[in-house]
Amino acid sequence: QGDIVVALYPYDGIHPDDLSFKKGEKMKVLEEHGEWWKAKSLLTKKEGFIPSNYVAKLN
């Protein structure tokens, strides 16, 4: 089961498979690959890669 993270900063995706998000948006982490994680937005239901240093895990 994936962790839920919250965006600390907004992110505008650079690549087509990036997931753009707004500050405060919550996402479910699907896979962790070093600095880039695959996640699904709980708001938009879209999936893509996010920079892990832009988010914090919720406990």
Score class of each variant (00 low, 15 high):
36 W>C: 09
47 E>F: 07
56 A>M: 15
11 Y>N: 03
2 G>C: 15
19 L>S: 00
42 L>C: 14
59 N>G: 13
4 I>Y: 09
31 E>Q: 10
28 K>W: 15
22 K>M: 11
30 L>Q: 05
8 L>D: 02
5 V>E: 00
26 K>G: 04
46 K>H: 08
38 K>T: 06
18 D>K: 09
46 K>L: 11
53 N>D: 10
16 P>T: 09
8 L>T: 04
39 A>Q: 00
1 Q>R: 12
10 P>A: 14
15 H>F: 11
21 F>L: 01
9 Y>F: 12
20 S>A: 08
6 V>K: 05
4 I>K: 03
49 F>R: 13
40 K>P: 00
37 W>E: 02
9 Y>H: 08
26 K>T: 10
19 L>V: 02
45 K>P: 03
13 G>D: 02
35 E>C: 15
30 L>N: 03
30 L>I: 10
50 I>F: 06
19 L>Q: 00
6 V>T: 06
56 A>C: 15
57 K>A: 09
29 V>G: 00
20 S>L: 04
55 V>Q: 01
48 G>E: 00
42 L>A: 03
1 Q>A: 13
50 I>G: 00
5 V>I: 07
36 W>Q: 07
41 S>Y: 02
13 G>A: 14
9 Y>C: 14
14 I>R: 12
28 K>G: 04
59 N>H: 13
45 K>A: 13
18 D>H: 15
1 Q>S: 12
41 S>G: 02
9 Y>S: 06
4 I>G: 03
39 A>C: 13
53 N>K: 13
26 K>F: 15
10 P>E: 11
28 K>E: 14
2 G>N: 11
38 K>Y: 15
44 T>K: 02
8 L>N: 04
23 K>Y: 07
42 L>S: 03
54 Y>R: 08
15 H>E: 07
44 T>S: 09
26 K>I: 15
47 E>P: 02
5 V>P: 00
10 P>V: 07
22 K>T: 10
36 W>T: 09
52 S>N: 08
42 L>Q: 05
46 K>C: 11
28 K>Y: 14
54 Y>V: 04
12 D>F: 13
19 L>D: 01
20 S>W: 05
35 E>K: 13
22 K>G: 08
55 V>I: 06
55 V>M: 05
16 P>Q: 10
18 D>I: 08
27 M>H: 01
38 K>H: 09
32 E>G: 11
3 D>E: 12
32 E>P: 08
49 F>G: 04
24 G>L: 03
4 I>L: 09
29 V>C: 04
20 S>N: 06
14 I>F: 09
47 E>W: 06
43 L>S: 10
4 I>F: 08
44 T>Y: 03
10 P>N: 15
26 K>M: 15
34 G>T: 05
56 A>N: 06
19 L>T: 02
25 E>I: 01
35 E>L: 14
